[in-house]
Nucleic acid binder design. Structure first.
Lengths: 142, 142
DNA sequence: TGAATTTACTTGTCTTGTTAAGTAATATCG
DNA sequence: CGATATTACTTAACAAGACAAGTAAATTCA
């Protein structure tokens, strides 16, 4: 009963692939003062509109405690707002602000350039294939 | 210049896929008292033999400062040993111990079962295809 | 209706991620 | 040879990951 070679272990392969892909993104983000996690939060909010924290945490791949702390500082920075749910007062609805959208706009060009470079070097077709497989895998075990 | 849909963003797709795949692994590891990161370290050491910290950090996808801290506690737990390099005294060579190997053996069965379950549900062929694409992606930008 | 659950966060604690700065050993270059 | 890099870690400080416990607002159900 022996273990798989680490480069054929899916969790490890996913992690290594992500580290590779993130390298240029980290450079971009370090020039913006925003963390990788906050970048995901505002992207999800911009894409999906105002949403509850639980849904936001799930979509941005964050745990609720981490999100709670981040939202506090992001609210102070003016990137988003939180309002108590009208129907259900336990919920808090998070919305992106214009300042938040500006951060996205300010880096959309660099972000697109990084994606385009990857697509050119890895191949558009293989990239689509990979994204399809990843999406299928994620949908697998909901 | 707009951003890619988050489920078509490779960094985010990789992260989401990994979260999905890791769920059962986390359950297994929580029953062992060992963290996901320490699990990677002993797997790499078992696979590749004694190695320097820089190489180990790279192979296990950890930053050196994180590794430094982890190695201290793992050494105390008896999972591995560190020796100063003979030729170059800056280097420290890390080796897995018998106790470390025992941790691997103790969970190899559960680990293989999780991998087999995934393979069965996702399909062996698609899994190989996905691993090939991930490996190609990782090799892309060395 | 009201006691017991469940849900949606929040807080606390500890480990790990991340960046910058520090230290000691080795390599390089004038 | 000796001053100056460079390399291989280590330490420090703060953000984020992870798990457990806490709180307040719904929901369920006897």
């Amino acid at each position: 009963m022996s273990l798989r070679r680490t480069d054929r272990s899916l969790p490890i392969a996913l992690l290594r692939a992500r580290e590779t892909v993130m390298a240029p993104v980290r450079v971009m983000l370090s020039n913006s003062g925003i963390s990788e996690q906050k970048w995901r939060v505002i992207r999800v909010l911009d894409e999906s509109g105002p949403m509850e924290q639980t849904a936001l945490a799930h979509a941005a791949c964050l745990l609720l405690p981490s999100l709670t702390r981040m939202l506090r500082s992001m609210e102070e920075e003016g990137l988003l707002t939180r309002t108590v749910g009208t129907d259900d007062k336990r919920k808090s609805i998070v919305s992106i602000t214009e300042a938040g959208r500006k951060v996205l706009r300010d880096h959309a060009g660099a972000s697109a350039a990084i994606a385009a470079d990857l697509e050119a070097r890895f191949g558009a077709e293989r990239l689509e294939e990979l994204l399809d497989l990843l999406e299928a895998l994620t949908d697998q075990e909901t």
